[in-house]
């Protein structure tokens, strides 16, 4: 069991996600930075998809009731055990009664705290992930807070001191380039609108969370047309469609929104492309006021990036097996 002394800004239980229910309107939820999440589990000897804590912008303060093996990956959020600084991306032995706490964030946005055995909250519709909008999964469907007690699953923990090579850790650049596979309803964009999207420097607005990231910078214009039946009157409206996770929509042409794991599954705003799966991790590690560029890529480049990430994760697996 883990006692929560302080939940941090926003810390939720997340696993690999909830699948097969998108057609009912259930988003996947799950860890936003999939690579850091899997590495955290590998470090402590868990199954890769086990439930962890996803801490946003600041870390929680946690007291471990029993001995445990933990690891923290993702954002550069300095961690301490009983006040003594400890390395991230490393498996650590925690004695019963010790307290894990964090200093201020140095880079990135989301840290992953894995505990050998996983956070053992009930499985809801196939996943332990928190989906706060509908109050399901995780701990009572919400972020953790002071006074909570988190159950830990039984485990044969990995040894302490295992570490992920620096070169295999998540990059946390100040400026992010997101590779976007243009498509979906991008025929609605004018050439100028497309250029503005791909050539403007965008800034992450304060509206940036697990539902989606909203950007400000350029101005997008749509091809004039008589709106088709059922689409609604605004030129940024289409007859409601399903939204891919990672898709970018532009209500009113002003602020592009990149939808993430807790987003709505469909709606009537023009979608113009999709951030490739690998780069959803980069969105998750960007934060308000951060600079973002969008670069158009085809499906082959998206698959190549995916293969490269798989190779990196394979290298982590090999080093820790």
């Amino acid at each position: 069991m883990i006692r929560v002394h302080d939940g941090g800004v926003r810390t939720t239980v997340q696993d690999a996600g909830r699948f097969g229910l998108y057609h009912f309107g259930m988003p996947p939820s799950g860890a936003l930075d999939d690579y850091s999440f899997r590495a955290a589990n590998l470090l402590v000897g868990n199954e890769e998809g086990a439930a962890v804590l996803e801490a946003t912008f600041s870390g929680p303060t946690l007291e471990f009731e029993e001995d445990a093996v933990i690891a923290v990956t993702g954002a550069d959020l300095p961690l301490k055990l009983d006040g003594e600084e400890q390395p991230s991306w490393t498996s650590l032995a925690v004695k019963g009664g010790q307290v894990l706490s964090f200093d201020f964030l140095r880079a990135g946005a989301r840290a992953y705290i894995a505990v050998a055995g996983g956070i053992d909250v009930p499985v809801v519709f196939g996943s332990r992930s928190t989906y706060a909008l509908c109050v399901i999964g995780g701990l009572e469907g919400r972020a953790i807070r002071e006074g909570d007690v988190l159950p830990v699953g039984s485990a044969r923990p990995a040894a302490a001191g295992r570490t992920v090579d620096e070169r295999l850790r998540t990059a946390l650049p100040k400026e992010v380039e997101l590779r976007v596979n243009m498509g979906l309803c991008d025929y609605r964009l004018t050439d100028e609108g497309r250029r503005s999207f791909l050539e403007s420097e965008w800034t992450v607005t304060p509206a940036a969370d697990r539902i989606g990231y909203r950007y400000r910078g350029g101005q997008l214009s749509f091809v004039e047309r008589e709106q088709p039946f059922g689409a609604g009157s605004d030129p940024s409206n289409v007859v409601d469609v399903g939204y891919p996770v990672g898709s970018i929509q532009v209500p009113g042409g002003v602020e592009p929104i990149c939808l993430l794991n807790d987003a709505v599954t469909g709606g009537g705003y023009v979608t113009i492309g999709t951030v490739i799966s690998v780069d959803r991790d980069a969105v998750a590690q960007s934060k308000t006021h951060g600079k973002t560029l969008f670069r158009a890529v085809g499906i082959e480049e998206a698959l190549q990036a995916r293969a490269e990430r798989r190779a990196r994760l394979d290298a982590v697996r090999a080093a820790l097996s």
Binding site: N181, C185, D186, Y187, V239, P244, V245, S247, I299
Partner: peptide, 20 residues
């Protein structure tokens, strides 16, 4: 019908722009 990829994990097919 119009087919497009939605990144590497999705395929979107628009049967028509208008509802029917």
């Amino acid at each position: 019908a119009r087919y497009t990829y939605g990144g590497d994990e999705f395929i979107f097919c628009e049967i028509a722009e208008a509802m029917s």
